[in-house]
Design a protein around this nucleic acid. Sequence first.
DNA 1: GTTATTGCAAAATCTTTGCAGGGTG
DNA 2: CACCCTGCAAAGATTTTGCAATAAC
Lengths: 167, 167
Amino acid sequence: MRTDPNIEEFASSNSPIVRKFSDYLDARGMRKTAERYAIFNRIQSINGHFTIEELQHMLDEDGFRVSRSTIYNTIELLMEAKMLRRHVFEGMQAQYERISLPHTHLICTTCGKVKEVRDTNFAAFMNARRFNAFNADHYCLYVYGTCSTCARKSKRAREPQGNKRRQ
Amino acid sequence: MRTDPNIEEFASSNSPIVRKFSDYLDARGMRKTAERYAIFNRIQSINGHFTIEELQHMLDEDGFRVSRSTIYNTIELLMEAKMLRRHVFEGMQAQYERISLPHTHLICTTCGKVKEVRDTNFAAFMNARRFNAFNADHYCLYVYGTCSTCARKSKRAREPQGNKRRQ
DNA sequence: GTTATTGCAAAATCTTTGCAGGGTG
DNA sequence: CACCCTGCAAAGATTTTGCAATAAC
């Protein structure tokens, strides 16, 4: 679309994570475009989960207009490169997150907020776990329930003054 | 749509699971229709996961034609009644399964097959696990990897005669 | 220069909705 | 016999695709 100064950084960066993506593209004879770098870069700065739409808004706000198709394309690439994961939690639209240390997802079924928690006991349990005739690659633990904020709100709503609860 | 003899069974059945659904409908002033019973019934006989499309095919084969809207409607109802769960595994369309004892899902990323395994150690671990300021209701553990069938095929493909691998 | 990539718009999926006719309670 | 439910078709939401213009190498 447009030539961006960023694109030089893309090939020459010393950041291991940038290198990983850059090398992945090289290995497959794919090109380093300003769009790919912008999307990749924006994602690195997100902590937690995001939807395609949210990502596009963030890029817009950065003044970087990228088409929906290119976003999907790059997201796909990052998933193939095992740098990004897609989650579809109950009753919600698809969300993405960078692949990092394994963690548990706490999903509030009232407000939809998702929180990540590290759980070394669980990680140890999973590392030791073997499945008959199944070669495990990675796992996802989703815990659905109510977050403290929603629990407080719903409790308040049940009490005398009867505050209205949203959602 | 049509009056089916099954519908009488619906209200009078002694099966606890039928009662549960029947009572759920009563409690909400909802009607017991032949369609709801047919869909509910068909689902009870499915072990494992199914898609909306597969369910409709099964009903068709049983000679019971139900519209897509009604299937979605009833599926929704069963989920609200906590008798059915929706799962969206990586890169696949939504699948449903009856809610039963907690189990781990093994998902083959090559062929897409999903297998359930009981894991009492894990269940015990989860039962004891408490999350700060989060009230857990239920959890899902998805393990992605390669099933033995696909592992065998891919191994064979890598060897001399070079069988072509599908997917 | 060659050819992968982008953006657009159109198509494809999957799911939801509005409404008229029909069945349940 | 009121009104909930069904089926249909149309609308929505999200994702994919075909193609001409453009940029990477």
